[in-house]
């Protein structure tokens, strides 16, 4: 599992690669929260294009960051979920809180 945090103007993009389970979640949570505390971002994007697996630890990470963004009137998006991953996202109902788009470009253009 790998990740990359990238800032595009007032948006923080978290790009993940591999399997999103409890092994990576703690480290990733600390890193994202540190960035969110240092600076107020308007948008947070989770790019899941290269994620092949997600379980409830990964879903917990996403929902926890959603709550933080929401508390600061920020917005959050998920992009590029594969069929497998999207199925789990829809099953959890997370899509009712965090909209899912095909690619980053779709968000930038809205």
């Amino acid at each position: 599992m790998g990740y990359e945090l990238k800032q595009v103007r007032n948006t923080l993009v978290v790009k993940l690669t591999g399997e999103l389970d409890m092994l990576i979640v703690d480290r990733l949570r600390k890193e994202i929260d540190k960035r969110l505390e240092e600076q107020t971002f308007k948008n947070l994007i989770f790019n899941l294009e290269r994620v092949s697996f997600i379980d409830s630890s990964g879903l917990g990470l996403i929902i926890g960051r959603y709550k933080k963004m929401n508390a600061n009137s920020g917005r959050m998006y998920i992009v590029g979920a594969s069929n497998n991953v999207e199925k789990i996202l829809l099953f959890s109902g997370i899509n009712k809180l965090v909209p899912i788009y095909n690619q980053e470009q779709d968000i930038i253009s809205i």
Partner: peptide, 12 residues
């Protein structure tokens, strides 16, 4: 019991 997780384990 852990607020960072969604409590979906048994549901899945």
């Amino acid at each position: 019991s852990d607020p960072a997780r969604m409590g979906l384990g048994f549901t899945f």
